[in-house]
Amino acid sequence: MNIVVCMKQVPDTETRIKIGSDGRSIDPADVEWIVNPYDEYAVEEALQMKERTGAGEVVVVSVGNERATTAIRSCLAMGADRGILLKTEHPFGDTFSIAEALANLLKEMEFDVLLFGKQAVDDDNAQVAQLVAHMLDLPCVTVVTKLEIEGSTAKAHREVEGGTEIVETSLPSVFAAEKDLNQPRYASLKGIMTAKKKQIEEKETQLGHFKIEVIEMLKPPPRPEGRIVGEGREAVPELMQLLKNEANVI
């Protein structure tokens, strides 16, 4: 079984976000870059599928600048066979242009399963899997928490409000991984050493026209200062009032 995983390198979720000088994106200084956590589930799923069928190849594809090779290398250390970097100096492309770049590459590749994370934890768009699927005219199941492949059909569980949908689809197909899909493995040192010898193909890529335009990035209003509302049950009415009118959460 041939599996392609689309992976994005993102700032670590603990990173302190500083707004860049352009006022529209983050300041990349002091950022720790990691493999998008949802994409790790996708990579793990791909590896397990390959291990189950005992044949095929897991290819990791990413769009980004040179720095993204370290993220691809991490996936190779987990066990993916090779990587492709669609290299662009515009690391913050919009979803549509990135999906186009991916689709252009994927059109030339043969695969049974195309995996994504359900969203990247940087811009949290959750769009690219469906965009690529449409561009390749493939079915797509998002927020997958369980995936079973049998022959050329797949059964995917997806979490929705109030329950789980079990979706059946034919292969090739696109899936976007949700958190509970599996437990991503920790790359062994053996894996890291082997990954050094695996191939990462870099392809210079021009992103197409953007469909959206970010005009401003700003800090959210600061977290309300924590305070002790009061003591014992007497404080409850005031807490209710705060939750209702200040926090607007109930």
């Binding site: 976000i17 949290d124 005009i215």
Partner: peptide, 18 residues
């Protein structure tokens, strides 16, 4: 003009669709 949280709510962006 849409405003949406990014980076798990650590920043907001204002965005047009072109």
């Amino acid at each position: 003009l849409g405003t949406r949280p990014v980076y798990a709510g650590k920043a907001l962006i204002k965005t047009f669709v072109k």
